[in-house]
């Protein structure tokens, strides 16, 4: 609760020991699964013609949810569908469970631009055969029930704090204030690119930093790439302290530096993750008829055997 511009943040304790890790999921696997969830939401959002606000909201919902829940108890895939369903309602862009479930099945069955879709091989024709991604009625009803349950679980886990402040519009405001929009029309696109990248960061930037800090960090990088000149540091009258332009937006240089490093690292991290699991995402995310995290359990079992 509180300001429209601020978000509830994760506590250091929550970040240090996640419920999934306490439940026996190694940290790297948790990060991979979380990335899969976020990437799935991002791609599904595009196919569902949802605005980025809705997509980002769904990703933050998912991240907040796994701050208090285990991925073994609540598998990624149904949580993704529930997060999309809930965020579409919260942002007044309601989509039907049916469409969400179909789109997820599509992304996980045929090659799409989504990084976790199956890779393009000779097996897949140019126009995919609908049989490959058709969701049978019985499976649909099971998934739908699961989706609705998880929606309630998410709401409970976040104590109905459904307002999520996003940095996108804030960034536009800041760019206007910095007089950077007119001379550099591409700067918005780059800024938004970084803000969207930040959603995938393993450092859970949207749970650890307020939107104003994210916006400033994204602008900082975008401005450097566009060669946009940002205002020089100057002495603040009265206190006689030198302040950079980021200080004006209430971000200190320490926080800015940290975020800039994180933002720059996302691209490479995503690349290695995608490579690591290429062709295996579908199996990893598989969910059993009873709603258990089948794929994850298999992977855990495999690792256990590997250790022996």
């Amino acid at each position: 609760m509180g300001s429209l511009l601020a978000n509830p943040l994760a506590s250091p304790l929550q970040l240090a020991a996640s419920p999934s890790q306490s439940d026996g999921i190694p940290q790297d696997l948790e990060a991979s699964l979380r990335f899969a969830g976020c990437a799935l939401i991002q791609s599904a959002g595009i196919l569902l013609r949802l605005p980025q606000t809705t997509v980002a909201t769904a990703i933050v919902l998912l991240q907040r949810f796994y701050l208090v829940s285990s991925m073994r108890e609540h598998p990624i895939r149904p949580t993704v569908s529930a997060a999309l369903f809930l965020s579409s309602k919260l942002t007044e862009q309601a989509r039907r469970p049916r469409d969400i479930i179909n789109v997820l099945a599509y992304i996980l069955s045929v090659p799409t631009p989504c990084p976790i879709s199956p890779p393009k091989t000779g097996d897949f024709p140019e126009t995919p055969n609908p049989e490959t991604y058709y969701v049978p009625e019985s499976s649909y009803f099971a998934q739908r029930t699961h989706l609705l349950q998880l929606e309630a679980h998410i709401l409970r886990a976040i104590a109905f704090q459904t307002h999520i402040a996003l940095p996108y519009t804030l960034a536009i405001n800041y760019l206007q204030a910095l007089d950077a929009l007119k001379p550099h029309p591409t700067i918005v696109k780059r800024t938004f690119g970084y803000l969207t990248d930040a959603l995938l960061s393993p450092s859970l930037l949207y749970l650890t930093h307020q939107p104003n800090a994210l916006a400033v960090a994204a602008i900082y990088l975008a401005a450097r790439e566009c060669g946009a000149k940002m205002p020089d540091a100057g002495l603040v009258p009265g206190v006689e302290v030198e302040a950079g332009w980021w200080d004006i937006f209430d971000v200190d240089r320490e926080e800015l530096g940290f975020l800039v490093v994180c933002l720059k690292a996302v691209g490479e991290w995503v690349g290695t993750e995608v490579e690591k699991w290429r062709g295996k995402w579908g199996d990893l995310l598989a969910v059993g008829e009873d709603g258990s995290a089948e794929g994850l359990e298999r992977e855990l079992e495999r690792r256990r055997r590997g250790e022996e």
């Binding site: 601020a6 509830p8 943040l9 701050l67 208090v68 104590a159 109905f160 307020q210």
Partner: peptide, 9 residues
């Protein structure tokens, strides 16, 4: 900003 924590109901 005063940031509330993320905790279940």
């Amino acid at each position: 900003f005063e940031a509330p924590e993320i905790a279940p109901c």
